[in-house]
Design a binder for these strands. Structure first.
Length: 854
RNA sequence: GCCCGGGUGGCGGAAUGGUAUACGCAACAGACUUAAAAUCUGUGAUCUGUAAAGAUGUGUGGGUUCGAGUCCCACCCCGGGCACCA
């Protein structure tokens, strides 16, 4: 089964074994199976036109090594791959060329698949998924419908980022510094009808769930910060104009209520008009205009300089009946809390800055433990100038003041989140269509009489005085596929190209089956047919990647997103490896969907990714991020052509710790390549036959034998801990030692190949076969080590005098401290340093070091 | 500004509080060769010293310890994230 090349001809060996694996479906993960499962997941790629980037194989090699190792250790390993294939670049390409985005996408996928196979990754290709395949996105749409039915999806007219260049709406997170993340085009605010997912309903669970997952701390912290839970008190301030009722504010510092000297409401606050005194009307109007026209770039970038305007109205502080002026300022955001704050300039930096600028009073109400006099003071302390509460510690005062307000119905403990609901629609063609049709109120009522799967509250939107009702397609009508279109260009009015496809858009809809005919035809006779307009938005790219790890479990299932048996056996990934750039968005959205599916009883665990690991970024040779414009991009194809896939895999792992950001050094790959050739030479002679030094009767010297056991131990442990760089150096150390051995036992060389197989699978297969293996090295299991062989009978003790190295002694393991001390004193270099001085003390660390103090 | 992560030879990096620089790259010297490639062997932190040896060395300055790259405090630099969230 091996090739017949005489030397290490990787260009012949690697394709040979790749086709062997392909033909034997070597990486198929059977289910059912009596074996314990291990599910190892890579973040699936977006198949861009540029092909595989060197960053992809880094993470993929790591997971592949682990997958192969786990198989050798007897696990049924699920290691799948697929394509996150909806996306803006494909659509832009389609707009430019007029070809269907699916065509281009499939070409790119073909190229990616070729490149991935050329690296010898052990994916189960029978489980490949493609988010743009209707058989796949049928279930993306199905999950959306479940969210919809649970009341977690709604429609809202809201200000969104509109990018004129891309002619589409972008999510907050797709806008960086006032520019689109894709293409770097300017964006502006626009009000558009949008689908929104109520992720905030899961804010608490999304925070709680982080406690129980094995994730990098930094990622957990980022998600926590993004969700931004904050406990505080909602306080009602009576307005002086009693008819207007109360002004509610949210504060985390109710203890500073006596220090409130003014209030601020956001310029968009609904009470702005009512609270504006006639004398202030013009000034307020001007201020609002000014803030509204500020681009968001300015509003975030030039945030340093605060501005505001007095409304002319007053509120009453509920704790001391003080009369406080109400200001309007854009440093208060409408989107957080109540859109209004009580300002305590003595103990808040922002309020202080504002108060100084507009000469508002500043009253200190918290005394610091040290005599800090400077204001603002935001630290710990006790209350002052707060009649009835003076002397109380900060946390106690919070509680008492909140309680006092609560008894009067003027305050209550509240929790606020920075997390906003998830803007879930895009004005694009190349995405999953929403399985929603808009119908009239009467038609919706009609549907409701027979449809048991409508949400408790209908989802509606008002347009030109008409209320439209969102009628979900029945599950059985899925998938709703994309129609062929004349042009992929968005309509430009805020709707996607789908808005121009009248036959698809304007329909007669059978409400119970979801069947449809174009509205231009006559209304069909049998059934409940209503006039409907389809939703023209499509889902964002996140949708498909929110649940793909579940589809891998049972990718061809046409009756469920996965069978219960598959869901029960495989559960969730045991390890998820991907870039830290997805720390918040993808990983938060997927967790949200998973929790909804958990609540629906579809999945049995509340968190999708128990263990998460971020591989680092590989920088260009010049130490900066690889990019086409810099010309420092490394193409895996080129490396494979010169050194082979095994060398590339080894080198990617040898470069440094997996999580580190590290530069690519084109010369360094020589090292691992030489190592592989050395392995080849130790196994085979120049004719490609068995090396004469290798025989089944040979034995290793004791030192080499010990090293062999140490290596088996260390390589296994290092793989378990994803420390591939040190695993490789250990194998190099072993090989260097074996090279110096007079003879090599065949069994030892076979062990070496089993250790090497996860890293350099092609070479390992080839040599395994040539060393007499009849089946794939992958079936040979993992070598074992004998712990007894790790214990030496002599040890080397480091000798120190006053903490300085002065020599060492190799002694039997059972040498006592007293014996050692006398041996050390006799050691010439030690003796020289203790001569003539009394030994004050000696410290002996068993088996390691003897430190003599004089 | 706030929150993380990181500063170790010429370079990538290694090091349960116990000989700092494993392993590899590059460099230099040697062996083999007609020659080259490949391969093998060796040398490689700084200062003082002919040498033996000694001293100093993990961003900077302190500290804890018999002993610190590792622990503690302060600071400098680099990278990432967040950024008026009340």
């Amino acid at each position: 089964m091996a090739t017949n090349c005489k030397d290490y001809d990787f260009l012949q060996i690697e394709p040979h074994w790749q086709s062997f694996w392909d033909q034997t479906k070597a990486f198929r993960a059977p289910q059912p199976s009596p074996l314990p499962k291990y599910y190892i997941l890579d973040m699936f790629p977006y198949p861009s036109g540029a092909g595989l980037h060197i960053g992809h194989p880094e993470g993929y090699t790591a997971t592949d090594i682990l997958a192969r190792y786990k198989r050798a250790r007897g696990f049924n390993v699920l290691h799948p791959i697929g394509w996150d294939a909806f996306g803006l670049p494909a659509e832009q390409h389609a707009v430019k060329t007029g070809t269907h985005p699916a065509t281009n996408t499939q070409n790119n996928i073909t190229n990616f698949r070729r490149q991935i196979k050329a690296l010898g990754f052990s994916y189960d290709w029978d489980r490949e998924v493609d988010t743009t395949d209707p058989k796949y996105f049928r279930w993306t749409q199905w999950i959306f419908l479940q969210l919809f039915k649970k009341g977690l999806a709604y429609v809202d007219e809201r200000p969104v980022w509109w990018c004129p260049e891309l002619r589409t709406v972008l999510a907050n997170e797709e806008v960086v510094d006032g520019k689109s993340e894709v293409g770097n085009f300017p964006v502006e605010r626009r009000n558009l009808r949008q689908w929104v997912l109520r992720i905030t309903a899961y804010a608490e669970q999304l925070i709680d769930g982080l406690k129980n997952v094995d994730w990098p701390d930094s990622t957990k912290r980022m998600q926590e910060a993004w969700i931004g839970r904050s406990e505080g008190t909602e306080i009602s301030f009576a307005l002086e104009t009693a008819v207007l009722g109360d002004l509610k504010v949210f504060t985390t510092r109710p203890d500073t209520l006596f220090g409130c000297t003014y209030m601020v409401i956001a310029p968009e606050h609904p009470l702005v008009d009512a609270l504006t005194a006639p004398a202030q009307r013009d000034a307020v109007k001007a201020y609002r205009l000014k803030t509204a026209s500020k681009s968001d770039l300015e509003r975030t970038d030039l945030a340093k300089d605060k501005s505001g305007i007095f409304s002319g109205s007053y509120a009453i502080n509920p704790i001391n009946q003080a009369r406080v002026p109400i200001w309007i300022a854009d440093y208060v955001l409408m989107g957080y809390g109540t859109g209004a704050i009580m300002a305590v300039p003595a103990h808040d930096d922002r309020d202080h800055e504002f108060a100084v600028k507009y000469a508002l009073p500043i009253i200190r109400v918290i005394a610091a433990s040290e005599a800090t006099v400077e204001l603002p003071y935001t630290g710990d302390g006790t209350l002052v100038n707060s009649p009835g509460y003076d002397g109380l510690a900060w946390p106690e005062a919070k509680q008492k003041i909140t309680a006092a307000l609560a008894t009067r119905g003027l305050g209550q403990r509240t929790i606020n989140y920075k997390l906003r609901d998830w803007l879930f629609s895009r004005q694009r063609y190349w995405g999953e269509p929403f399985p929603i049709a808009w119908v009239s109120a009467t038609d919706y009522q009609l549907a409701a009489t027979t449809r048991g799967d409508l949400p408790a509250q209908p989802v509606t939107f008002l347009e030109d005085g008409v209320v439209h009702y969102a009628l979900p397609l029945p599950d059985a009508a899925l998938p709703l596929t994309l129609p062929e279109v004349q042009s992929y260009l968005p309509s430009g009015t805020g709707e996607s190209a789908l808005a121009n496809e009248t036959a698809w858009l304007q329909i007669w809809l059978e409400v119970n089956t979801g069947a449809s005919v174009p509205a231009t035809q006559t209304k069909p006779a049998n059934g409940t047919w209503v006039r409907a307009r389809r939703e023209t938005n499509t889902m964002p790219q996140w949708a498909g990647s929110c649940w793909y790890y579940l589809r891998y479990l049972d990718p061809k299932n046409s009756t469920a997103l996965a069978s219960t048996e598959a869901l029960r056996y495989w559960g969730t990934p045991d390890l998820y490896v991907g870039g830290a750039e997805h720390a918040v968005l993808h990983l938060l959205y997927a967790r949200f969907w998973h929790k909804v599916l958990f609540d629906l009883g579809v999945v049995t665990e509340s968190e999708p990714f128990q263990k998460l690991f971020h591989q680092g970024i590989i920088l260009g040779e010049d130490g900066v991020k690889m990019s086409k414009s810099r010309g420092n991009v490394v193409n895996p194809d080129d490396i494979i052509a010169v050194y082979g896939a095994d060398s590339l895999r080894m080198y990617l792992m040898f470069l440094g710790p997996l999580e580190a950001m590290k530069p690519w050094n084109p010369q360094g790959i020589e090292g691992v390549h030489r190592f592989l050739r050395k392995v080849w030479r130790e196994c085979l002679n120049e004719e490609g036959g068995l090396n004469a030094r290798v025989s089944s009767v040979a034995a290793l010297t004791p030192d080499a034998e010990k090293l062999r056991h140490e290596t088996i131990k260390k390589v296994g442990e290092d793989i378990d801990n994803l420390r591939f760089n040190t695993a490789i150096s250990q194998m190099m150390i072993l090989l260097n030692a074996l090279q110096k051995e007079p003879a090599l036992p065949l069994a030892v060389m076979r062990d070496v190949l089993r250790l090497l197989a996860p890293f350099a699978p092609h070479l390992a297969e080839e040599l395994w076969a040539r060393l007499g293996g009849t089946e794939s090295v992958m079936t040979a299991g993992w070598p074992t080590f004998d712990p007894a062989k790790l214990v030496a009978n002599t040890i080397t003790i480091v000798l120190q005098v006053n903490g300085k190295y002065r020599g060492d002694l190799t002694v039997p393991v059972d040498t006592t401290e007293a014996e050692l001390l006398s041996l050390a004193s006799a050691h010439p270099k030690v003796a020289a340093h203790i001569a003539g001085q009394a030994i004050k003390r000696s410290i002996y660390v068993k088996g390691r070091i003897l430190n003599i103090l004089v």
